[in-house]
């Protein structure tokens, strides 16, 4: 039976703002399937975003949704999670939102290992503002603010997340949608800060300026470029050029989760106080 997306979409809020050929819709549907698979109670989900095309996603879904300021979604999300640690807090962010203006919040959320799932929609460009280069734009690529080709070195988002202390790091693509479902499921189930970098295509402001004749070409590029991490690791070094790993790239269980540690402290203080009261 076909999956019923409507049950999670807010009545009257479609059509969405995304361009024809934008892959964000694919990820959007993946997220809804995941929520269904995990049987999450939608009253218990807060979906938080920053600013950008990706960050418009929360408006369409029937959860508690919060569309914040550019780059700051993780600050808001951290506040929500600390106030209500038993709820599911998910963040949707663009590559610019998460790693340029929000880079500081991103690394610190990773460091705290707070139980939030961050989905970074990496389309290698600032889509919403019309195609300026971002911290993930590949060298040489054309952007409106790199009219002679990008000279600004890029971040590797999974490496950044891992280095900063995230306990679950994965990469999926809009092309490999079924695999993406599994990654997001695992990310949400993981206790701690989980990051899923999701490779996306922005045909409007990136693809057509960078020799991709159509959105399909960008999807085919994903198909050719990304290999399951196990397969990628088996490649001899000379064959890794132009290839990138996807799947779960890093996972560490059992690390202290921030809210658990904090509220553990609260419990300890409570017991001490009760203990002192009994001694009196």
């Amino acid at each position: 039976m076909a999956f019923n997306y409507d049950q999670y979409i807010r009545g009257g809020k479609l059509p969405h703002i995304w361009c024809p050929g934008c892959t964000y819709g694919i990820v959007f549907k993946s997220l809804l399937r995941v929520v269904d698979t995990l049987k999450l109670n939608r009253d218990d989900i807060a979906l938080v975003s920053g600013i950008g095309c990706a960050s418009r996603l929360p408006g369409y879904v029937d959860f508690n949704t919060l569309h914040t300021t550019h780059g700051r979604a993780l600050g808001f999300a951290t506040g929500i999670k600390m106030a209500k640690p038993d709820k599911h807090v998910l963040v949707v962010s663009g590559d610019g939102d998460a790693t340029a203006i929000g880079g500081n919040h991103f690394i610190h959320a990773c460091r705290r290992n707070i139980d939030i799932t961050v989905l970074v929609f990496n389309n290698y460009i600032y889509g919403m503002t019309g195609g300026q280069y971002s911290p993930t734009t590949p060298l040489g690529h054309m952007a409106t603010t790199m009219p002679y080709g990008n000279i600004d070195p890029s971040f590797n988002i999974p490496e950044l997340a891992k280095g900063a202390g995230a306990s679950f790091v994965a990469r999926g693509t809009a092309y490999h949608a079924a695999g993406l479902d599994r990654l997001i499921v695992e990310a949400i189930q993981h206790k701690g800060l989980s990051v899923v970098e999701i490779i996306n295509a922005c045909p409007t402001t990136h693809g057509r300026r960078n020799k991709f004749k159509s959105p399909t070409d960008q999807l085919l590029w994903m198909k050719d470029t990304f290999l399951p991490a196990v397969a990628f690791e088996k490649l001899p070094p000379e064959k890794t050029a132009g290839k990138l790993p996807m799947g779960v790239l890093y996972k560490k269980e059992g690390l202290p989760e921030y809210c658990e540690t904090y509220y553990g402290l609260v419990e300890r203080l409570k017991k001490q106080k009760e203990g002192r009261a009994q001694e009196r």
Partner: peptide
């Protein structure tokens, strides 16, 4: 922590303000 409330020292004032708004929205 003594009364079961949440204290956060964030990475900067921007994040602190964001967290406060998030905390309030969560009740």
């Amino acid at each position: 922590p003594q009364i079961g409330g949440a204290f956060l020292q964030m990475e900067d004032e921007i994040a602190a303000m964001a967290a406060v708004i998030g905390g309030s929205l969560a009740g």
